[in-house]
């Protein structure tokens, strides 16, 4: 009973604090504090509800239990992180985005191909590409190569469509100006069209970060060596070791946010001139 009352108190305090903060003039620290308070309140309520209602740890472990498990099994978590993120997701991300970028630049020279590839690319980007996972696992074996292949297939089309669109983002005036400077194709590409395409390219890169992690983890459900985040999640669920599953989810959340945040920071540095960044 005490735990439930504590949870209710935490809820009211958190809510009141946020209502009060939201009335203050909008500064950087307020904009940061409000979501943090919301998140902390949520975790406290979770802890109190699980303890108060005596929910079995097999269904939903408490945040403290997850934290303890996280600290106790850093070795396993690190090993899975290396297998899934560094070997599978990251190499697939680099290969997939890199090749999509090169194909987009090549396609850009042929308007006929471009008009054909854009609708097809848009169509494929909406398909459940993740279904290719079992096939690619069959082709490339159980180790990280097949996971990288799944990631390549998943990130290729979103990246391609965005880059092709970005390369069309210059207007006639700008291109004409370059032509009056007697700029060749490559000068035009590097000095005008690629910089102008950067907001689109980074949009593709950001979409691809989440796809890469999902692809690498889900591909492990179809077969993997005895390490990797997807493998650990599916086997730990079978052993009802839900605290370990949640620890893996925490790792995935941190990695996902850091990956996305890193690309967003890079975007800020590269496209500082764009209206959306000057805000």
């Amino acid at each position: 009973m005490g735990w439930i009352v504590l949870g209710l108190v935490a809820w009211i305090v958190g809510w009141a604090a946020n209502v009060w903060l939201a009335r203050l003039p909008k500064t950087r620290s307020v904009a940061l504090a409000v979501p943090v308070i919301f998140g902390v309140t949520l975790i406290v309520i979770w802890e109190c509800v699980v303890r108060g209602f005596d929910i079995s740890p097999v269904l939903l472990p408490t945040p403290t239990a997850i934290a303890v498990r996280f600290a106790a099994s850093t070795g396993i978590l690190w090993q899975d992180f290396v297998q899934t993120v560094l070997k599978g997701a990251l190499s697939g991300y680099v290969i997939g985005c890199g090749s999509a970028f090169l194909v987009a630049v090549a396609v850009d020279r042929f308007p006929f191909l471009q008009r054909g590839l854009l609708p097809v690319g848009n169509f494929v980007a909406a398909l459940p590409v993740i279904g290719m996972a079992p096939i690619l696992v069959m082709w490339f074996g159980f180790d990280w190569q097949s996971k990288a292949a799944v990631v390549v297939v998943m990130v290729f089309f979103p990246m391609l469509v965005n880059t092709v669109q970005g390369l069309q983002a210059t207007d006639t005036m700008q291109r004409d100006l370059m032509r009056t400077y007697a700029a060749g194709y490559w000068q035009m590409l590097f000095r005008l069209r690629l910089p102008a395409a950067m907001p689109f390219i980074f949009n593709g890169l950001k979409i691809a970060t989440t796809l890469a992690l999902i692809g690498a983890i889900v591909a492990e459900f179809f077969g993997s060596p005895i390490r990797g985040m997807g493998f650990r999640i599916s086997t730990s669920v079978g052993q009802l070791a839900l605290d370990l599953v949640w620890a893996e989810i925490v790792v995935a959340a941190i990695v996902g946010s850091a990956f996305y945040g890193g690309v967003a920071l890079l975007e800020k540095a590269v496209t500082f001139w764009h209206p959306s960044q000057r805000g």
Partner: peptide
């Protein structure tokens, strides 16, 4: 102010991974 950042953060978690 409080929910929107978390909605965005929720999508950087590979949710499909916890489907099982």
């Amino acid at each position: 102010m409080s929910v929107m950042p978390w909605i965005i953060a929720s999508q950087t978690i590979p949710i499909l991974a916890i489907a099982p």
